[in-house]
Amino acid sequence: MLQKKTEISEQTVWMLAVRDNRDRDAFCALFDHFAPRLKGFIMRTGCSAAQAEEIVQDVMLTVWRKAAMFDPHRAQVSAWIYQIARNRHIDVVRKENRPVPDELAEDPGSEPDASQILAIEQEAGELKKALSSLKPEQREIIEKAYLGELTHQEISDQTGLPLGTIKSRIRLGLERLRHELKGMR
């Protein structure tokens, strides 16, 4: 049903095909899109090409194995893969397991909400626009921050991370899970 909604990005469609149908062609499409970007992204932290490729390999394998955790109502595929990549990078470089929050899983029977998925994609598009309108020095600082190269003090000295309204959108996505959330506190 979702696949007919051409407005939903092809990355999301591929990821859902991997998640729900274990679709290898879709996985190959994700690889072709993300692997070169991941390699470039990881190499910006000073990793060698070979080390970056090892991390990319691990990240893409995690994408396949943990696909069930992907929830398009809250995250773009790129956001989900970004976090996997950062976690893996920390595991490799610092040899420590990154603490992660309890997971909130969707009710197995819950129907996808295409309007929420589209809204998240639109908000993420706004983030990209905001990024591309930054001055090069500002953008470089933000990149450093999200590549793990700034401390929280250094980040707090920077004004205005362009997070826009995406927080409230994601919150709506999380509200879908309120059934489960009730048990959390």
Partner: peptide, 25 residues
């Protein structure tokens, strides 16, 4: 509330990843 903020930061990281220059594997 903080989970939503955290996920917003993840989306920011994703936007940066998507905009990164590609390096052939």
């Amino acid at each position: 509330q903080c989970r939503a903020s955290l996920e917003a930061h993840q989306n920011m990281g994703g936007a940066l990843l998507d905009a990164t220059d590609r390096v052939a594997v």
